[in-house]
């Protein structure tokens, strides 16, 4: 079975700086894959390249066997990749409900909007309670829920998340990660970027370790959890 998402030797960067060089990875349908690594390793750059928000300077990106690395962000969203970016990037002066509804952009997603909205509210009851509030007035955890909910409204085949745990209290992170596990169990493929390596390895099926813009290591989570290098560099033991 071909991978849902395949990156082959992808290169991207900012100005003269090359942030990722030759990144290759695969995400199969139904998997929950973590992309881990330290600050500046190129995790965010990889997600932005997949989403079309940063031009891909080399290599190729395929979704379901079709090249997507030359497409505009809107076209990539339309093909089924939803992105929960770093810093959430909500619309702060619009209501929670408006933020969520804006996530449904394709004809298909619009047609099924009411049903998807109900399932997002079932996943995050807090959002249902606060749907008339402005997104800018939410707490950090609620904003993260809103960003995830907005991405789910697109009914994506692949959900990409950039550091959903950033700046949140541990108990909130636990609840968000439980929800990610549930979203994945219900059939959405997930690509998760995390600096919180222990949490990410606790959740994923497989993981890729990025170091200095290259994939340094990959394997099922149990193997990575047992790996001496990973333990020393990321788990602090």
């Amino acid at each position: 079975m071909p991978a849902l998402l395949r990156l082959d030797g992808v290169e991207a960067g900012y100005g003269d700086m090359v942030a990722i060089r030759g990144v290759s990875l695969e995400v199969a349908r139904g998997e929950l894959i973590a992309l881990i690594g330290s600050n500046g390793a190129g995790k965010t750059t990889t997600l932005r390249a997949i989403a079309g928000l940063l031009p891909c300077r080399g290599g190729r990106i395929e979704l379901d066997g079709a090249r997507i690395d030359r497409l505009r962000p809107a076209e990539i969203v339309a093909r089924g990749i939803a992105h929960v970016p770093e810093g959430r990037q909500l619309f702060p002066s619009m209501t929670v409900l408006e933020n969520l509804e804006l996530g449904a952009r394709t004809t298909e997603a619009r047609r099924l909007r009411t049903g998807t909205l109900a399932s997002v509210f079932a996943l995050f009851p807090r959002l249902a309670e606060r749907q008339r509030q402005l997104a800018g007035s939410l707490s950090g955890g609620e904003q993260q829920m809103c960003a995830i909910g907005r991405a789910l409204m697109a009914r994506p085949r692949l959900l990409m998340l950039d550091e959903p745990s950033l700046g949140l209290a541990p108990v909130v992170v636990t609840s968000i990660f439980d929800n990610l596990a549930r979203i994945n169990r219900e059939g959405t493929t997930v690509l998760l970027v995390e600096q919180n390596v222990l949490r990410a390895l606790g959740l994923c099926h497989r993981a890729y370790v990025l170091e200095n813009g290259r994939i340094a290591l990959t394997g099922p989570r149990d193997r990575l959890l047992a790996d001496e290098g990973v333990k020393k560099a990321y788990l602090g033991r």
């Binding site: 989403a51 928000l53 505009r72 962000p73 809107a74 990539i76 969203v77 339309a78 992105h83 970016p85 990037q89 909500l90 619309f91 702060p92 002066s93 619009m94 408006e98 509804e101 804006l102 996530g103 952009r105 619009r110 907005r150 991405a151 697109a154």
Partner: peptide, 23 residues
């Protein structure tokens, strides 16, 4: 309207509008 909301969204956070796939 959807288009009107998208205009407000792009004015509120242009990068966010790009992320959700608005043209």
């Amino acid at each position: 309207t959807d288009l009107g909301r998208t205009i407000r969204a792009a004015a509120d956070n242009a990068y966010g509008a790009l992320v959700i796939g608005a043209d």
